[in-house]
Structure formats: structure tokens, C-alpha cells
Design a protein around this nucleic acid. Sequence first.
DNA 1: CTGAAAGCGCTTACAG
DNA 2: CTGAAAGCGCTTACAG
Lengths: 330, 330
Amino acid sequence: MPKTIYDIAKAADVSIATVSRVFSRSNTVKESTRKKILKIADEMGYHPQAYAQRLASKKKNSIMMLVPVMSNHFFTEILKGSQDILVDLNIELTIQNVNQEMGVFKQVEQILKRQWADGYLLVSLHLSDQELRKLKRFNVPLSLLDDVSPLYDSVGFDNVAGGYKATAYLLGKGYHDVVFLSGKTTSKPVKERLQGFKNALSEYQIPFSKDHVILGNSMDRDGFTEKSGYEAMLKILMSDPLPGAVFCSSDIKAIGALKAMRDENVNLPLVSYDNLSISEYIGLSTVHQPMYDMGYQATKHLIERIENPFAKICDYVHDPELIIRSSSEV
Amino acid sequence: MPKTIYDIAKAADVSIATVSRVFSRSNTVKESTRKKILKIADEMGYHPQAYAQRLASKKKNSIMMLVPVMSNHFFTEILKGSQDILVDLNIELTIQNVNQEMGVFKQVEQILKRQWADGYLLVSLHLSDQELRKLKRFNVPLSLLDDVSPLYDSVGFDNVAGGYKATAYLLGKGYHDVVFLSGKTTSKPVKERLQGFKNALSEYQIPFSKDHVILGNSMDRDGFTEKSGYEAMLKILMSDPLPGAVFCSSDIKAIGALKAMRDENVNLPLVSYDNLSISEYIGLSTVHQPMYDMGYQATKHLIERIENPFAKICDYVHDPELIIRSSSEV
DNA sequence: CTGAAAGCGCTTACAG
DNA sequence: CTGAAAGCGCTTACAG
């Protein structure tokens, strides 16, 4: 049986209040008794139970990150940014995976209801305005990451600008017949990047048509898979005439697309999106998103919000940066 | 203020016991009162607090996964395997990141002490036998994943066999001057894969020497980074004569190594290790590890262990499979 | 610096 | 089918 505070108190011949004070780092305990209690606790393998502590104190010192891990190839960067700020503050970070296939909003609600943490980091969840508004009723600090909303502290990217930059670069190089290798078109980032694509076209007075958008058949993870990119590129390569260049909605898809080109022995200039750590090594021209900074910032906002619930909401939109490597320079 | 069970009881004109029964799905509640309570709870936004529930019931219905997310590129597969079994059982899964740079064992101890979960899944932690033995004192179900030990339920891989297969393949093709592109040599999987490498050499009666092992300078994440692979391959390419082939300790490193070869315009046959989802698309010959199955199995073991703490310990070692693609066929 | 006691929000025999 | 009451393992004013 695990030991309780009573066991330690009895063994140390003090009250449970004193034992509690030792573990809550209250400095009102005499050094000698503190040492004695710590020694006994260590021998008996005692440590306060998280549940009881949190119930009694109403403080949690804990933040929870909700994230669709499955689809999130840049998650490690975000996590690093988040941890770097949390470690010093001695705040626990717990991760909850949100399953994209099972109703994101319902899962979020379910988790918030349980009152696990002092605040929640919602990563790449892309909830609608209406859903976000509904979450207000839980009255708990929320911070959005890779998403922007005036309703919450949030730090995201201007996907429209990113899509525009990538496309404009290709157009500027003279490839006026660019094509968009899309993800699932209901996905928020896909929509926005497509909008950027359209904006660039219209700047060059090129009329947009449905034929500009090519999709793979595989639709798991919103189509953000190598397989889906491969399929889409195969379709592109079957068109006649071939487009001059490709703007691909994500690096992961681009990896599939690149293989399709190799298999078919065609080489179209390609720019994609995300700048994963591998992208540098496979020479992908891509739109960079500083995920580390984002994790750091969003976490900072959340902590400040927990401390001061009535501070001004702060939504920050990063301007993405285009990085040119070999894939666009054929 | 969040509502409590008392608020609901009062509003529904019943005792708190009845409200509790409704939420714990006890079927001893009259259908009409159940409906009434559920309706009121929904209106008032009530849901039982996780902490209080677990403290009172001593049941947690929850499993925690400890994982060095940072370094774990195949983590999503494991997670999927684990979730697929948990969802049906209505068991919560929480993920705790373990920071490789901060003393893995200490962190694990710290987490176990808190008594968060009914059981813990230790993923790719590679603790020593002595450390594992020490964890016994927490007297809580533990299941190891990507690690094998007779002390706990565990499912891992035979890294020695994997290293052997990869190397023997290269030797069998006539490349007798193979070289091992290593990770940090204190890392358990690196050591084992190197042992497999040695075994293959000795089968071909090739004496092993230190020169067979090449290391990059970057050592974060135990050297499992693209950068470290790039650096190591650059070193290899500076040797004279050049080796005939390379066995690379991980796919991520191989991606860096491949770039180094492209940059230097050399093309050595290469086999690596892991079979990440991207590996198929960049044509990596590699050693496959069925991470999904592993996540599924380890989770199953853990659940059975929680139900029956005295069942026979079951440690399972997967035999890895060599997959040949283009990188080895130059 | 320390203790007695109330309380955190639940669950669960027990009794009816 | 339902309620009163004890208890889960802690924290924290309050008093000394």
C-alpha cells in the first residue's frame, strides 16, 4: 500500500500539517524537523498524491496541451519551445492527443470539463469561431497555437501570405501555369494557402479555375501524407500539357510528390510548405514557420493569462518566410 | 465558479449520491431522475472533477505514456496502436514528455511518485537493469516499449539481429569494406546495432576495428539527427580509400548522409534503420520495426497487468525485417 | 514554528 | 431506487 501523509506524520512524530508544509515548500518549518521528515519520507517512499493535493489546494500548477499528434510533424519543435519556458516555472505539462477522426470539438469539450489543468494550449486544432465561442463557457484560460482568433490569446501564421509568397515566387520566375497540390479542401490551412495561391494568380491577371487544384485520393490526416502527395502528383503528370510548376500544400506531401516525379522521370519546379527539419536535407524550397518560437510564445501567453485572467487578449500572426532550395530550381 | 455536485443535487432536488450515480453510470437510478439530472447538469455546465473522482474512488481509469517525444520520429505509430485498444475500454491516455537532457530516471521516478495513473507505458527510455529494478518499489504496473527486460512486460526489437541483417546484406553483395555510421555510442540501440554489425563482420572473417565506426559531431538526441548524419558522412567521404558501403544507425541520420553524398557527388550503397513513413518515398533500404503493433501489444499487456498484477511477465522481442529499396542498389 | 480542525468535490457501503 | 454519512489524502486559515 502506498504511504499517506498520516504514516509520515506518525513516524516523524509531528502533525500532518507539518508534513504537508515540508512538501509544499513552505518555509515556516524548522530546518531540523524538515530534514527529519524528508529523511523519513524518502525511506518510506512517500510523496504527496497529485489528486489529493490539487483537490485540497485548488491550485494545479499544470498546463495541458491538446494536439492532434498524429498529423503534427512539427510538434517536437512546439513542445521544445513550450518546455523551455515551463521548466523554470516548475509547471507540469501534460499532453493529450486529440483524434482528428473522432470529432475534435467534442473531445476538447470533454477534456476541459474534467478540469485537469490551470490552462490549455490548443495546438493546430482549427476550431470554428462558433466552436471557440462555445468554449468560453468553461471559463478557463485557453491559448491557441497555429490558429488565430480574436477571442483568445493566439499565435498563428498568415497562411494566405505564405501561399501568396510561394506562388508569386513561381510566377515571378515565369511559370505562369502553376498548379496547387492541395490537401483536403475543408482544412483551414489548406483553404488559406489556396487563397494565397489565388491572390498571386490574380495579381498576374491569370484567371483561376478548378483545374488549378489537384488532390490525391488518400484523405486521412486531411490529406497531409506522403501517399496523398504521391497520388496527386501522378494526376498532375498525366495532364497534357504539363503545368510549369507546382505549389504543394505541405512538405510531407511534397516528399510523395517528389517521388512521383522521379518515378515518372519528370522534374517540375516545386515549392511547398512547413520547413520540417528534414526539408533542408532533401532540398525542398518551402515556406518556413518558426514553430519553436510559436510554442514559446503561446505558452508564455497562457501563463500570463492564468495569472491575470483579465489582461488584454493578444493575438499574434507570424509572417511566414519563403526559403528557396533546390526543388524549385530545376 | 464551476458547479459542484451539490449545486446539481439541490437544483434537481435529490441527494448528491444520486447525482454521483448518474455520472458513474451506475444503473440503479430511475430513468426519469437520471434524465432530469442529466438535463440540469447540462444546463448548468456540470461535469465531475477528475481529481475528486479519482481521490474518492481510488480508481483512475487512466494510463500514462512516458516518452522522449523529441527524439521519437515513430511515436505517432506507437500512439495509434495504443489508442486503438484504449478507446474501446474507455481508458484515458495521457502523454508525458521525458526530457533526454535532464536525467531520464529521475524524471520517471518523479512521475511515478505522483500516482497519476493505473499504469505506465515506458517508451524508448532505455533504462538500465538497475534502474528498472529500483522502479519496482513503486509497486505500480509498468510496461516497456522499445525495450526488453525480464523484470517487466515488455516488447522490443532485436537490434542485434537488425544490425546483423543490414550488414550481412551489404557484405553478401560483395561490399566487404562496410562502415557503421553510428549514433552516440552510449545509446542502447546504437550499441546493439553495432553488435549486430560486428557479428556480421566476424561471420565473414573480417576483423573489426575502431575505424569501422564513424560518428558525427552533433550529439543532441543521442546523435539521431539529420545534421549528425550529414557530418558523419562527410567524414566518411574524406577517407581514402572510400568504403564500399554504409550501414547507418537510423533513417533520420541517413537523410543527412544522403545529402552529404549528393553534395560531394559520391554514391555509396546505404542501408539504415527504422523505416519511417517517409523512408519509402526517398527510397531508403532500411530495417523495419512494426511500431503500430508494438504500441498495441505493450498497451494490451499493461491493461492485463493492471487487471491481474500477478500474471506471468511477458517479454516479447520482435525480429526486425530488412526492406530493400534503392539506396542500397547503386 | 507547529497543531487541531474544517474543507476540497467526489464515491460507496449501508440502511431503508 | 434513494439518502445520510463516512472517508479518500491532502491544504490552509486560525490559534497558540
